[in-house]
Nucleic acid binder design. Structure first.
Length: 231
DNA sequence: TCATTAAGTATGC
DNA sequence: GCATACTTAATGA
């Protein structure tokens, strides 16, 4: 187990109000683990015995329908808590978390949740704040799915990933983790064929540039226009 | 407008 | 060289 430094947590919202010594206590009780791309950190319906913090990498949060197809509910970026079933009064995980890229996460036993929220100022409020933000985002994409045409949904999905993980390159802003057409169709409720056609067309128009599992948005503004922000 | 089917090419371990 | 990712056209709801 590598030695963990306090500076890992000091700047993250759930810990930003804490003393150095408090962060040390929290870190001393954490387990750090690395996850290969494609690995599940935990699965929907399983016993929620731990909660997690993503230090590095990206996660897909996935729910499976009875029919067998899966829906990508949201993505987790570094610095975010996840698998916080105890905050939802649940004893099983409501969704599956998969490493979209190689990732590193800390985790603690759920038994520590009540202790953390009680002892550390700001931990609880920050946790519920991120939960609230996630709920809002899910509701937004839900109404988007119900009301918008496929092209707009795919444009929105790309923009969301860019906003969450985008890094600037020479040609534009690239999505920082591997994404397939299938992944995007799982986020937008369409087929990989439709996503492929849209991306091909946008590439021809100079809006995006993509290779296998890798997408760069070369003209974010036009993608925003396609996403149908009203105006 | 979009899913489905089907049949192909490209890419990377 | 095989599995996986991706492309494209045709058809029909």
């Amino acid at each position: 187990m590598p030695k963990l430094d306090e500076s890992l947590l000091a700047d993250l919202p759930p810990f930003s109000l804490l003393e150095r010594s408090q962060i040390r206590e929290i870190l001393d009780r954490a387990v750090s683990r690395r996850y290969e791309e494609g690995t599940a950190i935990f699965r929907e319906g399983h016993d929620a015995d731990r909660f997690f913090l993503l230090l590095d990498g990206y996660l897909r949060v996935v729910r499976s329908t009875p029919g067998g197809d899966q829906v990508i509910v949201l993505h987790i970026s570094p610095g975010q808590l996840f698998g916080i079933a105890p905050a939802l009064q649940r004893d099983t995980y409501p969704a599956t978390s998969i490493a979209a890229a190689e990732s590193i996460a800390l985790s603690w036993p759920v038994s520590l949740w009540s202790e953390f929220t009680a002892r550390y100022p700001g931990f609880a409020s920050e946790s519920y704040k991120t939960l609230g933000q996630r709920l809002g985002q899910i509701q937004e994409t839900l109404t988007e799915m119900a009301t918008q045409a496929v092209e707009k949904r795919v444009a929105c999905a790309l923009l969301r990933m860019v906003n969450q993980s985008g890094r600037k390159t020479g040609e534009g802003i690239e999505i920082a983790f591997p994404v397939t057409r299938q992944n995007i169709s799982d986020m937008t409720g369409t087929t990989l064929h439709t996503v492929s056609r849209l991306l091909s067309a946008w590439q021809k128009d100079g809006i995006v540039s993509s290779t296998r599992k890798h997408i760069v948005v070369t003209d974010p503004h036009r993608l925003v226009v396609l996403s149908g922000v009203q105006g």
